[in-house]
Amino acid sequence: MLRVNQVWVKRGAAVALQDISLSLEPGRTLAVVGESGAGKSTLIAAILGLLRPSHGEITWAGAPVRACRPALVMQEPRSAFNPVLSLRRSVMEPIVASGGTIPADRLCHLCDGLELPPDILDRRPTEVSIGQAQRVGILRALVASAPLVLFDEPLSALDAVTQKHTARLISDLQCEEGFAALIVTHDLGYAAAHGDEIAVLKSGRIEEIATPEQFVLTPKPGYCEQLRDAALALGALEAAA
């Protein structure tokens, strides 16, 4: 399981994350919400080991996170794939890099689950729709059975209909595969509907970690309450409430 313990991250002179502590069990989903600049992307980079915390430690099952081969689904599906390689090559990269193999039908099975046509993997990233590209991104994250998958704004490049659909596919696959999901989003409705817990991040600090029910009914006074009210006013929390 993921343990983030009193982590501080500095970027130049500025402090990007202060004293972050959170944990996540396999099969569970943690949604991290916050406005732009709150430190969401820094948190992901720190968990993936792309940034070194100046203080504190981040582990998966007691070992550095990178040892468990975590996977990442990016916000911009187009730039997440090398434009000159076929999607199949990009998807198989985690398998090829570790020198392993996968059961022959796993790719087909996952494609089915993600409602991707079987021939799509032989195309280039520019030859598929954004929604399809994002689902191929999810496919790449899952293909090597990563125990921890991080989602960085997985829906924000998609249109409204595709967003709902993709969100449902992610939770269905999570039930089936049992990975731990950390979803970073600014969409409170999505966080409340799909997260087992919600962590509210503001200016590099965690304001509150709560279940969706707690968050909607009794948010911590101050920023979290404002956030909840704003989301209610927009009608974003109807599904959760």
Binding site: L50, M74, S79, A80, S90, V96, A97, S98, R140
Partner: peptide, 14 residues
């Protein structure tokens, strides 16, 4: 910092 380069690093490519 391009997406696919980060992905390749995460995948453990040399």
């Amino acid at each position: 910092t391009r997406g696919y380069v980060v992905q390749a690093q995460l995948a453990g490519l040399s």
